[in-house]
Design a protein around this nucleic acid. Sequence first.
DNA 1: ATTCAAATGCAACTAAGTTGCATTTGAATC
DNA 2: GATTCAAATGCAACTTAGTTGCATTTGAAT
Lengths: 142, 142
Amino acid sequence: MPTAKSTLSTSDLIRATGVKVTPARMRVLELLNGAGRPLSHSDIESALVARPIDRVTLYRVLDSLVASALALKAVDTRGVYHYSAAAAHHRHSNHVHFHCTGCGGSFCLDAKPPSAPKLPRGFQLSAIAFELRGKCKSCISG
Amino acid sequence: MPTAKSTLSTSDLIRATGVKVTPARMRVLELLNGAGRPLSHSDIESALVARPIDRVTLYRVLDSLVASALALKAVDTRGVYHYSAAAAHHRHSNHVHFHCTGCGGSFCLDAKPPSAPKLPRGFQLSAIAFELRGKCKSCISG
DNA sequence: ATTCAAATGCAACTAAGTTGCATTTGAATC
DNA sequence: GATTCAAATGCAACTTAGTTGCATTTGAAT
């Protein structure tokens, strides 16, 4: 039995932003929503090999998801863009993260992110980045 | 009149790390020390056009400065590596920075960086990133 | 002055991302 | 259901950032 109308479906989310609901957008957004971590362009390409999406189309799909705020874009320490579903991201906005430089893993900590300091007059804040970096337990002992 | 022995000279700093003192290393490190902001590979190439350094050599010089801890490497939001002199960086480690998404400028604020939250047992911290992002005064009013 | 690992310069390569353009398609309208 | 057209796609070619291999040069130790 299909679910009634629990939450907005992926297609509804996409349609609501005013762009076309296409297979590529559906598949990419669903993948991002299911992934537990930000994915790079090549991560996504590999994940969707079953029915490949053109390289350029994938870049454009990602750009459009970012433009419509359904996805977020960030660079990793190697300078590669990674994308995450905005919905998934919100589940991670109220605690800080630890990134292991050994295994590349990301860990959620209990601590809340620090609040913003006072800005100079006339400045407008749009984002705060707070990130811890180091080695996780298994990368030290292993 | 040449200065007596105020602080370590650039060549002393380089020699102390055990690598050869070469013109390329001297020029790059002095440039980084003089720059008020992190520079990309291409920033540095442009700055040194007078007597050009080979592209690859420049990458290797930068890598060696980073390896010997005389310089620091970080990616910007476009995914491009930027390098800064460690000495210059230390002058900026006790306050937070605001990055303007409009003009790309970096501003030093008075506030101190937040301290690290408690980590899970067995984790080892190596770096804390705290960064504010938004629009600066002149990018809003301009 | 000799020696040799370290550093350099060049060519070729990879990976990530972008642009232009012709073709296809989602969805609005009839 | 058929028509229409901007939006989306696919392909080729390109740019930018960074890396690798190898032959030549050079800093500094002897």
